[in-house]
Design a protein around this nucleic acid. Sequence first.
DNA 1: CGGGCGGCCTGGAGGC
DNA 2: TGCCTCCAGGCCGCCC
Length: 274
Amino acid sequence: MPELPEVETVRRSLATRLPGRRIEALDIQQPQLRNLLQPAALRRQLVGTQVVRVARRAKYLLLHLSSADVLVLHLGMSGRLALVAAATALEPHTHARIHLDDGMELRFRDPRRFGMLFVVSQEQLERHPRFVHLGPEPLTAAFTPLYLQQRARGLKRPVKNFLMDAGVVVGVGNIYASEALYRARVHPATPARRLTLQRWQRVHAAVRATLRHALRAGGTTLRDFRAADGRAGEFRVRLAVYGREGEACRRCSRVLRRAVQSGRSTFYCPGCQR
DNA sequence: CGGGCGGCCTGGAGGC
DNA sequence: TGCCTCCAGGCCGCCC
């Protein structure tokens, strides 16, 4: 589900509400997510701590705690976080409930259970196996056209797969990889090593613009996605290629196509993207 | 070692 | 209505 704009949207919706709240209790209904939750250990680490701030790295949400630990949450494909009154009826696939000191509850739901939840010390976070290999954030100065060109040196994998590799750049998933390449007018199957610096400049700018616009719209809701306050994202109507196979390109009117790359759908315009 | 692929899960859509 | 297949926004381990 959620790529950078969606995770960042969730972060923002939590950042106005969570800091200062104390965790009073934790209920685990279903410990088997992507990682196996250890209810007793989690309770020991979380209960009694205060949320200090809500951050994000790649597609991970980071709840920094007063204990100098970090509660790390990943939404996988279908995960949702909701901040609701404790009396709210329990919805299906609610795996974890974090009870707060103001009568609210942070609920983690995830039908497909590809999501993750774990605690790591702030100090160890960057060295954690899930974090240590991560590339730069696309909206920071570390992400440049030259960086892309250098990382692509010698790689014959398609540029779309390259952009979706979190070791190259984080936060770009299947929707925004297609959208950004359309915006950059680069064919998704182009071997990464074939792109000139000039084209990397276009790709770089397109990745950033696409993510920024999606962020401004509160992300893309295809089906599941909601911010923590329940709001859906509005970017779906602005998608230029994703999910629009068979429809007309808005730029050149050619029929948009779908292809499969490494088992994932890619959408592109055969006229605009060479 | 780069990189494609299957597997992890459930549910929705569409075909018959 | 039911049953089947395919597909889905992520990530990792296996294998060539």
